[in-house]
Amino acid sequence: MSIQETLDANVDADVDWEKARAILVFLLPGLTLFGVFSVGPMAYSVVGSFFAWDAFEMGAFVGLQNWSETLTDPLIINWDNLLAFTFPMGALPQNLLWMVLHVPLSTVLGLVLALLFADLRGKRILRSLVFLGFTTPTVVIGLVLLFVYDPQAGVFNELLRVVGMEGQVRNWLQEPQIAIYCLVAGGVWVQTGFSMLLYSSALAGIDPSLLESARIDGAGPFRRFKDIIWPLVKPVTAVVVIMGMIWVLRIFAIVYAAGGPSGGPNHVYSVLGLEVFRAAFSIPVEYGKAMVVALIELMFALPLAAYIARMD
């Protein structure tokens, strides 16, 4: 009934009821599931972040208490360590540090590989090899990193041994001040495949005659890149960057697999997702805190969503 009223109010006087009914039939099943399992829980988290929680039961309204407690929690932001730039700095700064390193590196590497492969024979196989990591489950990526950095069985330490840096061999993921960079490298390893794929398809769309005419005009390789290739692949960069940021915001399985639910020794590479998981689903259950941390993640995602919406 209320739906009909809204329809009435919004559509021209001559509402086509047959069409309106069809629209409802098409929309309703999908939107119901979307509402119940996506939008509803999101709203629930927003509301719940202002209430006290007794395990999974919502209690009294407490205003910003969850927020202030969470933001002063050293697991989320450890101000002292942050100012001294020693780990653990808290999940929020660590997550942001990850983003700041991961996104530019994977973007640039993706572009470099796309350009490198662009006109080689067998480029499809080369690309597939690089892209393989992105189709691999992230939990496997985490385990692979654990394996790579293993002091005995890890290929990274073997590399150090081969180049004569025997003294540097160690369990890299147990080194508080270094571990996160080792994981970021792993993230870049995976994400580069994705940005390379997008850049490759953008490069494939460039009309070769453009490059030819630029060459006839006397442009060298650098100028050709700057004047022709870059302007044409620039829009893709926005997409690559946004997707990279969303990927880092959601990071969970890699960290969990490499360092367990605590996010490494003394939480040195914990991220926001991990904090939500521990707050909500390990004893003691802190639903309020979990919701606040998840909402902090959302706040970083919202501008990205707004940007995507504007692109459309």
Partner: peptide, 28 residues
């Protein structure tokens, strides 16, 4: 249809949102 634009934005928002955000509600 009514709310088309709103729904549209909500969908994009969910695309960008972290899955942790819906975990508590869905758990309950």
């Amino acid at each position: 249809f009514p709310l088309r634009k709103t729904l549209f934005f909500v969908m994009i928002m969910v695309m960008a949102a972290p899955p942790e955000l819906v975990a508590m509600g869905n758990y309950n």
